[in-house]
Design a protein around this nucleic acid. Structure first.
Length: 340
DNA sequence: AACCCGGGGTT
DNA sequence: AACCCAGGGTT
């Protein structure tokens, strides 16, 4: 007796009445669906909307993406986070040209070969853009399935994911796989909410949901606790020469790889250039998934225009147009702009 | 399997 | 402060 057997019909009915209007749904070409799915990885719909619009305006085809300058690509991604998604997106665009003759792979297995496309994303593109009957199991879907079926397995474990994926494969309607997958995610995002706060009175699965019947919505899904963040105290140097500020490029691997930043070091740190003047600046805090930066700025009047190898002077126009600076430094934007 | 990789909204 | 988000890659 499987509760999921009863899900497809009421879920699809609910989705037809409640689907949000989203830009990537109006013309679901493989390119549109793919770019939206990459942007939506670990990122909420509301945060993606403006990025998606600007991205499609700048790079309307997969060929445009394959050819774009990397710095311009990163500027389009600036502030969205997980920047390797953008680099993998371009790698995959070039894979489409070289490995698939410019035509998007239309199978789950073919899609899985693309950089940045894993099990979830391959299932999403295959089902939504090509009508292939495969599940797309993301965090929303794991929560919905865990509650409806009363599955107490840790959803971070591969075997739990595989079990839920198989259960979905068995009930997935072959005539509407894309709608079914999107409906499950939409239900998780808008009704079957996390942290024990589901809106069961609006749920099309309420009549047969195990967690609701057994009053276990607060306990499901089961997920292992996360590791604590470490705190780093950093000194950020806002270095000025006339109406320009110093920027440097971060290393090509690791956190915020390849993006631009105001020079900064673990505290305490000496001023990295010869200073004609030095004064205290604003403080800033930024929380990453695994690190917490507590930052204090030093305002530096450079004694000369000489900078270490690879650093640049940026005026206001260049800062806005040419350099992708992550949001971690947002706290200093005002102090910098006031000088440019 | 564990860890790394952003940023922000909710509770 | 904790949780989680239309996850994937690396080690």
């Amino acid at each position: 007796m499987n509760q999921l057997d009863q899900l497809p019909i009421p879920l699809l009915q609910w989705y037809r009445e409640n689907a949000r209007v989203l830009p990537w749904r109006s013309d679901p070409t493989p390119y549109h669906v793919w770019v939206s799915e990459i942007m939506l990885q670990q990122t909420r719909v509301a945060a993606v909307l403006d990025y998606y619009r600007r991205f499609m305006e700048a790079l309307p085809t997969v060929a445009d993406l394959a050819a774009v300058e990397e710095d311009r690509l990163m500027k389009l991604w600036q502030g969205l986070g997980y920047y390797n998604r953008a680099r993998n997106l371009q790698k995959a665009a070039r894979q489409v040209a070289e490995d698939f003759g410019g035509a998007f792979p239309d199978t789950y297995e073919g899609l899985l070969t693309l950089s940045g496309v894993g099990e979830y994303t391959a299932g999403a593109i295959a089902s939504i853009a090509f009508g292939v009957p495969v599940p797309a199991v993301d965090g929303n879907v794991l929560r919905v399935v865990a509650r409806i079926s009363g599955d107490g397995g840790d959803i971070a474990r591969p075997d739990t994911k595989a079990r839920m994926r198989a259960a979905l494969q068995a009930v997935l309607p072959v005539d509407a796989p894309g709608d079914f997958n999107q409906a499950l995610m939409e239900l998780g995002a808008t009704v079957c909410l996390p942290n024990g706060a589901p809106l069961c009175d609006r749920c099309p699965a309420a009549d047969f949901c195990t967690a609701r019947r057994e009053e276990r919505t607060g306990e499901l899904p089961v997920k292992a606790a996360k590791k604590a963040r470490r705190i780093e105290n950093r000194t950020v140097f806002l270095i000025f020469w006339g109406k320009k500020v110093a920027l440097r490029r971060r290393p090509g691997r690791g956190l915020l790889a390849g993006l631009w930043e105001y020079p900064n070091e673990l505290s305490p740190a000496p001023c990295p250039v010869e200073a004609a003047g030095l004064s205290g600046g604003p403080a800033g805090k930024h929380i990453f998934s695994h690190i917490e930066w507590h930052m204090t700025a030093q305002i530096v009047e450079a004694a000369s225009p000489e900078l270490p190898e690879g650093w640049v002077w940026a005026d206001r126009a260049a800062l806005e147009r040419d350099y992708a600076v992550p949001n971690a430094f947002q706290a200093f934007a005002g102090a910098v702009e006031a000088r440019l």
